[in-house]
């Protein structure tokens, strides 16, 4: 059995299967593993080893990118627990969340009519950022209590807000370009 290709991402880096992750340890181990398997270490090896090296290095890169990112790590943890994140069949969003989201969206759609659109956009971005922090904290609690259904709901909410942040950032870039 091939260790690299068959273990889950946490096992791969010898880390506990937990949302709360030691980023420094993750990065240190990622680099150790790439030192051992990266194709640059196999330029003089046989074709067979080179093929395996590319496969392993790709798998390690994928595992690292997944665990490093909060959202991807959360989604991956849920998938390990057979919880699917299908957006269409997602549970009903709570009304308060939808309300708050709508307000921010509305504010964002009106920034161009403001006297200082750039600073208004900045304010909105700050609020969005706050909200992300708050929800990420909540996500951590859910995983700590092993309440995976609640965790899934928070992940879905976060997905919405990340999209909102992306929109706000692109508006900010456009406004900066126009200066």
């Amino acid at each position: 059995m091939d260790l690299i290709l068959s273990s889950n991402y946490f096992e791969l880096f010898e880390l506990p299967v937990d949302f709360n992750i030691d980023q420094q340890q993750l990065t240190a181990r990622y680099r150790q593993m790439q030192q051992a398997v990266h194709p640059d270490r196999f330029v003089n090896a046989t074709d067979q080893e080179r093929r395996l090296s590319v496969q392993h290095a790709a798998r390690i890169n994928e595992a690292y990118e997944t665990l490093r990112d909060t959202m991807q790590r959360a989604r991956y943890l849920l998938s390990l627990n057979q919880i699917q994140l299908d957006e269409q069949t997602s549970s009903v969003m709570d009304a308060e969340f939808l309300m708050h989201q709508m307000e921010l969206r509305e504010a964002l759609s009106e920034v161009r009519d403001q006297t200082d659109p750039l600073s208004v956009t900045g304010d909105i971005l700050d609020q969005v950022q706050d909200w992300i922090r708050q929800l990420t904290g909540k996500l951590m609690e859910c995983f700590a209590k092993h309440d995976l259904d609640a965790a899934r709901d928070v992940v879905l909410q976060l997905q919405f807000i990340y999209k909102l942040r992306q929109e706000a950032e692109s508006i900010e870039a456009e406004l900066e370009d126009a200066l």
């Binding site: 091939d2 150790q32 593993m33 030192q35 051992a36 398997v37 080893e49 395996l52 392993h56």
Partner: peptide, 20 residues
Amino acid sequence: CAAYVERRMNASIQRAMSGH
């Protein structure tokens, strides 16, 4: 040789990990 090559590579990763 496939299994042998794989086992060796796994071992080298483990060595790299344990060394560090």
